[in-house]
Protein backbone atom coordinates (compact mmCIF):
# COMPACT_ATOMS: atom_id res chain seq x y z
CA UNK A 1 0.00 0.00 0.00
CA UNK A 2 1.30 3.40 -0.91
CA UNK A 3 0.81 6.51 1.05
CA UNK A 4 -0.90 9.48 -0.44
CA UNK A 5 1.16 11.77 1.65
CA UNK A 6 4.73 10.99 2.31
CA UNK A 7 7.27 13.03 4.14
CA UNK A 8 10.29 11.61 5.79
CA UNK A 9 12.67 12.97 8.28
CA UNK A 10 15.96 12.37 6.69
CA UNK A 11 18.95 11.38 8.72
CA UNK A 12 22.18 12.49 7.20
CA UNK A 13 24.38 9.55 6.47
CA UNK A 14 27.19 8.38 4.35
CA UNK A 15 24.82 6.33 2.26
CA UNK A 16 21.97 8.63 1.57
CA UNK A 17 21.82 12.09 0.15
CA UNK A 18 18.41 13.56 0.00
CA UNK A 19 16.98 16.44 -1.89
CA UNK A 20 13.51 17.50 -2.71
CA UNK A 21 12.58 18.65 -6.17
CA UNK A 22 10.22 21.20 -4.79
CA UNK A 23 10.09 22.57 -1.31
CA UNK A 24 7.74 20.38 0.65
CA UNK A 25 4.80 22.40 1.81
CA UNK A 26 4.89 21.57 5.46
CA UNK A 27 1.50 21.83 6.99
CA UNK A 28 2.55 21.22 10.54
CA UNK A 29 0.03 21.71 13.23
CA UNK A 30 0.99 24.78 15.15
CA UNK A 31 0.99 24.97 18.89
CA UNK A 32 -2.10 27.17 18.37
CA UNK A 33 -3.96 24.21 16.93
CA UNK A 34 -3.10 22.18 19.98
CA UNK A 35 -4.21 25.01 22.27
CA UNK A 36 -7.51 25.15 20.40
CA UNK A 37 -7.90 21.38 20.77
CA UNK A 38 -7.20 21.59 24.51
CA UNK A 39 -9.78 24.36 24.91
CA UNK A 40 -12.21 22.31 22.89
CA UNK A 41 -11.74 19.30 25.15
CA UNK A 42 -11.46 20.96 28.57
CA UNK A 43 -12.69 24.54 28.12
CA UNK A 44 -9.53 25.97 29.71
CA UNK A 45 -5.78 25.54 29.86
CA UNK A 46 -3.91 23.34 32.33
CA UNK A 47 -1.04 24.01 34.72
CA UNK A 48 2.10 21.95 34.39
CA UNK A 49 2.46 19.54 37.27
CA UNK A 50 4.76 16.85 38.61
CA UNK A 51 1.71 14.81 39.55
CA UNK A 52 1.64 13.44 35.99
CA UNK A 53 4.30 11.09 34.82
CA UNK A 54 4.45 10.82 31.04
CA UNK A 55 6.78 8.26 29.52
CA UNK A 56 7.69 8.17 25.86
CA UNK A 57 10.97 6.96 24.32
CA UNK A 58 13.41 9.81 23.58
CA UNK A 59 13.94 8.29 20.12
CA UNK A 60 11.12 6.65 18.20
CA UNK A 61 12.45 4.83 15.18
CA UNK A 62 9.05 4.84 13.62
CA UNK A 63 6.20 7.30 14.09
CA UNK A 64 3.54 4.75 13.22
CA UNK A 65 3.58 3.21 16.66
CA UNK A 66 5.09 5.13 19.55
CA UNK A 67 4.58 3.70 23.04
CA UNK A 68 3.17 6.16 25.57
CA UNK A 69 2.56 5.64 29.27
CA UNK A 70 0.73 8.08 31.54
CA UNK A 71 0.38 7.88 35.29
CA UNK A 72 -1.39 10.45 37.43
CA UNK A 73 -0.89 10.62 41.17
CA UNK A 74 -4.27 10.16 42.81
CA UNK A 75 -5.79 7.99 45.55
CA UNK A 76 -8.69 7.15 43.18
CA UNK A 77 -11.33 7.28 45.91
CA UNK A 78 -14.90 8.50 45.50
CA UNK A 79 -13.80 11.93 46.69
CA UNK A 80 -10.48 12.25 44.94
CA UNK A 81 -10.05 10.73 41.53
CA UNK A 82 -8.91 11.48 38.00
CA UNK A 83 -11.94 11.93 35.76
CA UNK A 84 -10.33 12.34 32.40
CA UNK A 85 -6.96 12.11 30.73
CA UNK A 86 -6.33 13.36 27.20
CA UNK A 87 -3.29 13.04 24.97
CA UNK A 88 -2.29 15.76 22.52
CA UNK A 89 0.35 16.08 19.82
CA UNK A 90 1.88 19.47 19.13
CA UNK A 91 2.71 18.47 15.56
CA UNK A 92 0.01 16.23 14.11
CA UNK A 93 -2.62 18.18 12.17
CA UNK A 94 -5.19 16.53 14.40
CA UNK A 95 -3.69 17.32 17.80
CA UNK A 96 -6.14 15.30 19.91
CA UNK A 97 -4.91 11.72 19.96
CA UNK A 98 -7.14 10.06 22.54
CA UNK A 99 -9.28 10.71 25.62
CA UNK A 100 -9.68 8.35 28.59
CA UNK A 101 -12.47 8.54 31.14
CA UNK A 102 -11.74 7.02 34.51
CA UNK A 103 -13.82 6.28 37.59
CA UNK A 104 -13.02 5.56 41.25
CA UNK A 105 -13.35 1.91 40.21
CA UNK A 106 -10.16 2.36 38.17
CA UNK A 107 -8.08 2.06 41.33
CA UNK A 108 -5.02 3.41 39.57
CA UNK A 109 -4.82 6.28 37.08
CA UNK A 110 -2.36 4.66 34.74
CA UNK A 111 -2.69 4.00 31.03
CA UNK A 112 -0.46 2.82 28.27
CA UNK A 113 -1.08 2.87 24.54
CA UNK A 114 0.61 3.41 21.18
CA UNK A 115 0.17 6.47 19.00
CA UNK A 116 1.01 7.75 15.51
CA UNK A 117 3.28 10.77 15.43
CA UNK A 118 3.97 12.85 12.34
CA UNK A 119 7.49 13.84 13.30
CA UNK A 120 9.73 14.94 16.14
CA UNK A 121 7.60 16.66 18.73
CA UNK A 122 6.26 16.92 22.25
CA UNK A 123 3.34 14.86 23.39
CA UNK A 124 1.18 16.42 26.12
CA UNK A 125 -0.91 14.60 28.69
CA UNK A 126 -3.62 16.55 30.47
CA UNK A 127 -5.58 15.27 33.43
CA UNK A 128 -8.80 16.62 34.88
CA UNK A 129 -9.33 15.84 38.55
CA UNK A 130 -12.58 15.41 40.39
CA UNK A 131 -12.00 18.70 42.25
CA UNK A 132 -11.65 20.55 38.96
CA UNK A 133 -7.86 20.81 38.86
CA UNK A 134 -6.48 20.61 35.35
CA UNK A 135 -2.84 19.56 35.15
CA UNK A 136 -0.44 18.67 32.39
CA UNK A 137 2.93 17.19 31.53
CA UNK A 138 4.82 16.91 28.29
CA UNK A 139 7.57 14.75 26.85
CA UNK A 140 9.60 15.04 23.71
CA UNK A 141 10.46 12.36 21.21
CA UNK A 142 12.66 12.38 18.16
CA UNK A 143 10.87 10.55 15.38
CA UNK A 144 13.18 9.02 12.80
CA UNK A 145 10.51 8.01 10.30
CA UNK A 146 7.28 9.97 10.62
CA UNK A 147 3.83 8.49 10.40
CA UNK A 148 2.97 10.50 7.33
CA UNK A 149 -0.45 9.05 6.83
CA UNK A 150 -1.86 11.11 9.59
CA UNK A 151 -0.48 14.46 8.46
Amino acid sequence: MKHLVKRRDILKSSLAVSFSLTTPALALAKTDDMTAAILDTFGRLPKESDAILLKIPPISENGYSVPVEIEVESPMTNKHFVKKIALFSDRNPLPLLAVYKLTPRSGLAKISTRVRLGGTQSVHAIAEMRNGDLISAKAKTLVTVAACVIL
Binding site: Y64, S65, L94, L96, S112, L117, I150
Partner: peptide, 13 residues
Protein backbone atom coordinates in the same frame (compact mmCIF):
# COMPACT_ATOMS: atom_id res chain seq x y z
CA UNK B 1 -8.84 9.54 17.06
CA UNK B 2 -6.71 9.07 13.96
CA UNK B 3 -3.55 9.44 16.03
CA UNK B 4 -4.10 6.10 17.74
CA UNK B 5 -1.81 3.50 16.16
CA UNK B 6 -3.25 0.74 13.98
CA UNK B 7 -4.23 -2.43 15.89
CA UNK B 8 -4.89 -0.38 19.02
CA UNK B 9 -3.22 -1.43 22.24
CA UNK B 10 -4.41 -0.26 25.63
CA UNK B 11 -3.72 -1.04 29.25
CA UNK B 12 -5.63 0.36 32.22
CA UNK B 13 -6.55 -0.68 35.75
Amino acid sequence: HRGVAANPFLTFY
